[in-house]
Simulated scan of single mutants.
Amino acid sequence: MNTLIVYATKHGCSEACAKMLSKELAGNVELFKLKAELTPDLTEYDRVIIGGSIHMGKIQKEVQVFCTRNMEMLLDKKIGLFVCGMLFEKADEELNNSFPKELLTRAMAKEFFGGEFKFNKMNFVDQLIVKKAAKINNDFSQILDENIKRFAALMNSDC
């Protein structure tokens, strides 16, 4: 079983979660960081997992564009969807607002992986926003290992 994990990341949390997830999945797993100009060849994969982080209530544009451009091919794959973020109380809402309905209804696994603040990866404005809105002044991680393992178990159940 060949699996592709495609993700977009601003400060590295989605990338860290994608790497953690890749270690839990059965079969051959490849990671692909989405960029506006690059698209992976999906024909080589049985499963495609798509994820990104939530900023200001939205997932990265690269994730939205990837889903839209590849919808037809994605609908023929086993799909998993994840988001990273720090608003735990809005996790379900953010997940459901981040992906097209067609993918949400077909996904084998959908999950919120938690998030983290890494100040050394943020620009000054992002640091200011986090300090004011979240009232956090230091690096802080709340990645949910259990959610990543549960997601992987669901994806592996069809192997």
Rank of each mutant, 00 (worst) to 15 (best):
N2C: 00
T9F: 03
T9Y: 02
H11I: 12
C13L: 06
E15G: 12
A18K: 04
L21F: 08
L25T: 07
A26P: 00
V29M: 01
V29H: 01
K35Q: 13
A36Q: 01
E37F: 02
T39M: 09
T39D: 11
E44P: 00
E44G: 01
D46Y: 07
R47G: 00
G51K: 09
H55I: 00
H55A: 00
G57Q: 10
K58E: 12
K58T: 12
I59Y: 07
V63F: 06
T68K: 15
M71E: 15
E72T: 14
F82Y: 14
M86D: 02
K90I: 00
A91F: 06
D92L: 09
N97V: 02
F99A: 02
F99Y: 15
E102R: 03
L103C: 02
A109M: 10
A109Q: 08
F112Q: 01
F113C: 11
G114N: 05
G114T: 07
E116A: 13
K118G: 05
K118W: 14
F119K: 04
K121G: 03
D126L: 05
Q127G: 13
Q127E: 12
Q127C: 13
L128I: 11
L128P: 00
K135M: 07
I143L: 15
L144R: 14
E146H: 11
E146L: 10
N147E: 14
I148A: 03
R150Q: 14
F151A: 04
A152K: 01
A153S: 12
S157Y: 06
